[in-house]
């Protein structure tokens, strides 16, 4: 009788181990973000905040997903050295380099480039941020 119980225990343990080993693994990238099947790769919205965290745009940014540019006009007198860009991306995509604080956009001749990486991490599209300053 005791022997029989032992056998049940061992079999139960084995079945559980097999079930756990069959659990599907979700892949994550180096940032710990889920890698999905989505291949879409674009910027859907762009915002630019000043040092006071108030928008400096004069109108909505123009995003050209074919030319891969974000054109934005900022108010006269904007402090271009201390700006906080905000990108809205398609589902599951991520941005490279990451925005971790204020960004210096003062070198208008050499626009900054941000790369959008798709959800499956296979498609990469660089977007240029082209800033113009509103005339007085």
């Amino acid at each position: 009788m005791r022997n029989y119980n032992k056998k049940i225990l061992v079999v139960g343990f084995l079945i559980t181990s097999v079930l756990m080993a069959c659990k599907k693994d979700f892949p994550v990238d180096e940032d710990g973000l889920l890698v999905t099947t989505r291949a879409e790769c674009y910027v859907s919205n762009f915002e630019l905040l000043g040092a006071d965290f108030v928008t400096v745009r004069t109108k909505a940014a123009t995003i050209d997903t074919t030319a891969q540019t974000v054109k934005v006009e900022v108010q006269f007198g904007t402090d271009l050295k201390n700006l906080y860009p905000q990108f809205t991306l398609v589902t599951d995509a991520k941005l490279d380099p990451k925005i971790i604080g204020k960004v210096d956009f003062s070198d208008l001749a050499n626009p900054k480039t941000y790369t959008v990486v798709s959800g499956n991490r296979q498609v990469k599209k660089p977007y240029q941020v082209l800033i113009t300053v509103q005339p007085r």
Partner: peptide, 21 residues
Amino acid sequence: TFTSAFNHALVSPAADPQYLP
């Protein structure tokens, strides 16, 4: 008041003259 939003401003005397019209 210009076409741009200039309005009330505090500007250093040494700033670019375009900010001290």
